[in-house]
Structures are given as C-alpha cells and as structure tokens.
Design a protein around this nucleic acid. Structure first.
Lengths: 155, 155
DNA sequence: CCAAATTCCGACTTAACTGCTAGGATATCC
DNA sequence: GGATATCCTAGCAGTTAAGTCGGAATTTGG
C-alpha cells in the first residue's frame, strides 16, 4: 500500500519547480541538489511528465524544465497518475470512473457473479482519488510559504 | 499504489468466513475451493490473522477457522493492517495517528525543516484509513445477501 | 566556432519483494 | 488408526523498484 519513489520524488520535484516561480527554466541538477535526489533518476521521471504535458523542457545550456500549466491546475493526482499509473488499489477497479465499469464488475476476480469485496475497493479508490486530486501544486506552495515565510537570506 | 494479493485474498477469505455463519469451523480447503484460491497460500495468511486475534482456529479433522469476534466489529482495515502492514502511502506518515508524529515530521525525508509534501500524504493516509475502517465484514455480508438473497439451491 | 551545460534515450544492474509451492510435524475427530 | 486439519519453515521463479551508466542531440555564452 505504498507509493513508490517515482511518485514521491516526482511530486517533490514538481513542487520544487512550482516554488521556483516558473519564469526561467530550472535544471534537474538544481532540483536534485536542493531536494537531495539523483539527477539521473529524475531524468527518468521527467520524460513521462513532459509527454503527459505537465512540464515543458528547454534544451541546452541554461535550459531546464518549466511547469506547462498553472500550478493551481496541476494536482498531486495528475502527477501520481503519470508516474504510477491509474489510481486504484486493485486492478479490477482501475477505470476510476464511468466507462465499462459495469462490464468489468462481472468479470472481476474471474467469476461470473459480482465480486463481493469490490465495493470496498471502489470506495477506497474514490477516497484516494479525492484526496490526491484535491491538492494542487499551488496549494503546496502556499502551505510551504506560510511555514517559512519567504525564501530570503536571514543569516 | 496497489494492495497485494495477501490483502485481497485475506479480505475475500474473511468475508467467506463471515458469510458461512460462524457456527462450525470452516476449513481453508473449502474457502480455497469456493473462492478459487490456493489452500497453501491461504495458510500463510491465516497464521498472522490468528496471531492478531481476528480468527480462532480448531485443529484436527472437522477443524478450521472461525471469526474471533463479531463480523460487525472486524473492519476491512483491520485485515489489511495485519496482512499488509500499516496503512500509509509513504513510510514517514506511518504511525497513522498520535504518537510521535511531531518528531517524525521533522526528520521526514532526511531534512531538518518540515517536508513540504508531507501534508498530502497525511491527507491520503487519512482518506485510506477512513475508507477501509468504515466497512466491516458484517457490511459486506449484508451487501452480498441483498444482491443474492440467500445461499440456496435454485437449480 | 568551441566548450560547457543540459535534455534526451536506452540499456544494464542489484536487491528486494510477490506469489506461490513443498514437505513435514502436530493435533483431533470418527 | 487413519483421514482430516492446522501449523511451521523453507525454497524458488518471476517481477518490480530504484537506481546507474554511457552517450547522442541541442542550445547558450564566451
């Protein structure tokens, strides 16, 4: 029941990007240094994030990444879905909503009748989706600024 | 973000136990047959479940397992915690409640200041705990009976 | 135009975990 | 006493997690 480092590091890196203002590109190296992550490993995460349209890249010296959208419009759920796949505690409740749920319900667990435990997993899935989609990068940035007023040189 | 087969099979097997009335012991073999699971694999799950006090065992011929408590007092969360460990999306929010949360908060992610993404994981954890603890075996049994009125021989 | 910085891409590695299976000891009912 | 069970420990093949490595392509500053 854990999310992997992909999800954790991905959210942290995206938070870092959001906190950095989004005016000039931010290099993975600087993110890796600030957040104590492996630069090479971050590369693996930003490929999918770019393809999913959550970040834009700028190649070459002084290049890096920028959020592709407003921080308030990017939820933690968006990031997790890209890096970890569909938010679902078990495969048979993966579509997350609508679609061919009805059909899935019948085949679930390889039995013809409806799986008796399915309702719990659906409830769990919905709770997870709600929790992750209700928090945006903008929210995280504002929370962080409250705790540590402004990124300034006190010392 | 998936729960493993331990959790899935465990909940299904406990549901089977609850559905079976809890008057005579139910053997793992019969559960395995009904739910299409491996008997040997179920054994691995019922050791911990017994040690955690969720089921009682009766050894010998005509033996098997019984729920140790009222089906309404055993939640899906109880079962999942035994078989999958603490319900928490990341390690640094594991205590689930109270305790030395404050202290953990500071050391989280190996940095001295508070981890900026921690609030999301706490929110997710709480949502998961609430979803899993709000459903009992009794609830599942009643739901199942509604759909398939009574376990009777129709054919 | 060159060198440094940086994204981009794919392969490789190591360790741990998952999902079983095997075999046997012990207890109990008929 | 034999069939039926739980109990316990070990092993094992396949997958995944978490990174590492090396190098190509692209851009900027000097």
């Amino acid at each position: 029941m854990k999310i992997s480092t992909k999800g954790r590091y991905g959210v942290l890196a995206m938070f870092d990007l959001a906190l950095s203002g989004n005016e000039v590109p931010v290099s993975l190296k600087s993110i890796a240094d600030r957040q104590s992550l492996s630069e090479h490993y971050l590369e693996q995460l930003f490929g999918p994030l770019r393809k999913a349209g959550l970040v834009r890249s700028v190649r070459g010296a002084q290049g890096g990444y920028l959020l592709a959208r407003d921080p308030d419009s990017i939820t933690v759920g968006d990031i997790v879905r890209v890096l970890e796949g569909p938010i679902a505690p078990v495969e048979c409740v993966q579509p997350e909503a609508g679609g061919d749920e009805k059909q899935l319900a019948r085949d679930c667990c390889g039995r013809p009748e409806v799986c008796p435990t399915r309702p719990v997993w659906e409830k769990l899935r919905d709770a997870m989706v709600e929790a992750l989609d209700s928090v945006s990068l903008g929210d995280l940035v504002r929370q962080a600024r409250e705790r540590r007023p402004v990124p300034m040189y006190y010392i």
